[in-house]
C-alpha cells in the first residue's frame, strides 16, 4: 500500500514527563505538544528545584524549563504519586535532553538519529470487518528508550479514532487492529504516529474502504409525550448510529416529509397530537408529541388576583406571628 509520510522531526517543543519513586526519576511517555497544549500549558508556579534542559554536543544548555512537581493524592484512596512535567523548547542543535534536580542530573535522553517509518506489508485497498495484523518498520535506527507508536483510524464521517499505543522496542512493530466496530465507508485511512523519544513522525496510509456500518436514526428531541405551546417551537435533534451522512436524516411530521438534517425546529403546528418521525434510508422511528394552546388550556374564569393575597387565611401549624 502506498503511504505518505509527514515528518515533524524538528519539533519546537517536547513535553517531558515522569514520576519520582524512591528518589529515582522514572520517565513516562514524552509527547510532542499540539498548539492547544502549548497555549494551555501552565507556567510553573514556583521553582521546584527540578528542571529539564536541552543541551548540545558539548553539553552547553540551549534551553531550560522549570519542571512542575506535583505531589498528588489519588483521590478516594491512600495512594499518592509525585509527578514531574515540563514543556521544553528544542532549539536546533539539541543533542540530548537532561532532567536534573538542582545541579544533580537524574536522567538523560539522547536525540535519536533520523528515522523513517513505513508499513511493512501492503494493506489491501478494501478491508473486511475483522481483526487485521499491521506491521510497521522503523528504518534508520533501532528505537530507543521511550519510543512508541500510536495507531489511529480516520473515517470521513467520524472524529479520528485512536486505536492503541505500542511500545517500540524493535525495528518492526506489530499491531492487531480490530476493525469490527470502527467507522467505515470510502476514504478511511490508517495512521501511525511514531514517537522516537523526542520527535514525532506520522505515517498516513492511502485511502482504504471499509464496509460501512448500517445506519440507524436516533431521535434525541423531542422526547415522547412532550408538550409544546402553540406559540413556541419544537426542537428537533437527532443522531445517526452507524455510518452515513446525517444530512440524509429526514424528519416526517404527521406523514409528510418536512425537514432534513440532524437538527432544526418546527413552528406553526396546530394544537393537538402530532407524530414526529425520523427516517434514514429504510430505517424509521417515531414519537408522539402534543401542541397545546396555553390560553385555551387555562380557562379565564377567575379573578386575576389569587386569594392567598386577599382572602381569609387558614394557618397550618403556628401562625406567622409566632415565628420570632
Amino acid at each position: 500500500m502506498n503511504a505518505r509520510v509527514e515528518r515533524r522531526r524538528y519539533s519546537d517543543y517536547v513535553i517531558v514527563r515522569g514520576r519520582i519513586e524512591a528518589d529515582r526519576f522514572i520517565p513516562g511517555w514524552w509527547v510532542t505538544p499540539s498548539r492547544e497544549m502549548l497555549e494551555a500549558w501552565p507556567p510553573p508556579s514556583e521553582d521546584s528545584g527540578w528542571f529539564a534542559a536541552a543541551v548540545d554536543q558539548e553539553d552547553r544548555v540551549l534551553a531550560r524549563a522549570v519542571a512542575t512537581v506535583t505531589d498528588a493524592d489519588v483521590c478516594r484512596t491512600d495512594d499518592f504519586q509525585i509527578d514531574v512535567g515540563a514543556l521544553l523548547p528544542l532549539p536546533p542543535g539539541t543533542a540530548a535532553v537532561v532532567i536534573a534536580e538542582n545541579d544533580r542530573e537524574v536522567y538523560r535522553r539522547a536525540v535519536p538519529a533520523q528515522a523513517n517509518i513505513a508499513f511493512a506489508e501492503v494493506l489491501p485497498e478494501r478491508l473486511e470487518r475483522e481483526s487485521t495484523r499491521v506491521a510497521l518498520r522503523i528504518q534508520g535506527h533501532l528505537p530507543g528508550e521511550g519510543a512508541y507508536v500510536v495507531l489511529r483510524w480516520e473515517a470521513p464521517s467520524s472524529a479520528p479514532w485512536p486505536l492503541q499505543i505500542i511500545a517500540a522496542e524493535a525495528a518492526e512493530v506489530l499491531a492487531e487492529v480490530d476493525l469490527r466496530n470502527l467507522p467505515g465507508g470510502r476514504g478511511c485511512r490508517l495512521v501511525a504516529v511514531y514517537y522516537d523519544g523526542i520527535h514525532t513522525i506520522t505515517l498516513t496510509s492511502e485511502e482504504i474502504e471499509l464496509e460501512p456500518r448500517p445506519g440507524y436514526p436516533v431521535l434525541i428531541l423531542p422526547l415522547p409525550g412532550m408538550q409544546f405551546g402553540a406559540d413556541g417551537c419544537v426542537p428537533l435533534e437527532a443522531e445517526l448510529d452507524g455510518d452515513g451522512d446525517t444530512g440524509d436524516l429526514v424528519w416526517i411530521v404527521d406523514g409528510t416529509e418536512t425537514k432534513s438534517g440532524p437538527r432544526g425546529t418546527l413552528e406553526g403546528l396546530d394544537v393537538g397530537r402530532h407524530v414526529i418521525g425520523l427516517r434514514y434510508q429504510q430505517e424509521e422511528t417515531s414519537i408522539e408529541i402534543e401542541i397545546v394552546d396555553p390560553a385555551l388550556s387555562m380557562p379565564q374564569t377567575a379573578t386575576p388576583t389569587p386569594p392567598w393575597r386577599v382572602g381569609p387565611a387558614t394557618w397550618l401549624g403556628l401562625p406567622p406571628s409566632s415565628y420570632s
Binding site: 513535553i15 511517555w29 509527547v31 510532542t32 505538544p33 499540539s34 492547544e36 497544549m37 494551555a40 498528588a72 493524592d73 489519588v74 483521590c75 478516594r76 484512596t77 495512594d79 504519586q81 512508541y148 500510536v150 489511529r152 472524529a159 479520528p160 485512536p162 492503541q164 499505543i165 504516529v193 514517537y195 514525532t200
Partner: peptide, 27 residues
C-alpha cells in the same frame, strides 16, 4: 500519549479517562 497523537483531541475539547472499578479512586 494517544490523546496527544489524535488530531482535535489534544485540547480541552476532549477529556479522556481510564476507569477502574468502584473504590479505585481518581487522579
Amino acid at each position: 500519549a494517544m490523546k496527544s497523537a489524535t488530531p482535535g483531541a489534544s485540547g480541552p475539547e476532549e477529556i479522556w479517562f481510564t476507569m477502574g472499578n468502584f473504590g479505585q479512586g481518581g487522579v
